[in-house]
Amino acid sequence: MDLIQRILENRFSVTAVILFGIGFANLMLQYNLVKKVVGFNIMDSAVFLLLASQGYIEGAMPPIVAEGAVEATAYINPIPSGLVLTGIVVSVSVSAFSLALIQRIYHKYGTVDLRELVMRTEKEED
């Protein structure tokens, strides 16, 4: 029971770790290039989940200063949200770049399977 209790308390971190593992395994082990990109996105989402959950404070307000100043402790921590935002920008641009590259590879070779591509390039070089 104690274990379940702890998992529930840290549910965001646990989910993040599981997602990171899934994404990482996909990025490393998949041969399909598109699936690799998907794996990379899952991995990054896991990090964003971890970061965002670290900055969340139960019952606190969004960090927008409305009329009438409120104590800083009444807001959630805005820095992790900012980091997540930056991270999303980075991950979107990297995804776009890799998808564009995969598209070109597909046009040239007609496949997105890494094993086959490596085999073909070795033949080309011989």
Partner: peptide, 24 residues
Amino acid sequence: TGPNMIATIRYLFLSLMGSGLFLI
């Protein structure tokens, strides 16, 4: 060239793995 594109994509994916580890 073709081999260059394949080299790039392999470089990119390993790099992404590295930066993912760094980020977490």
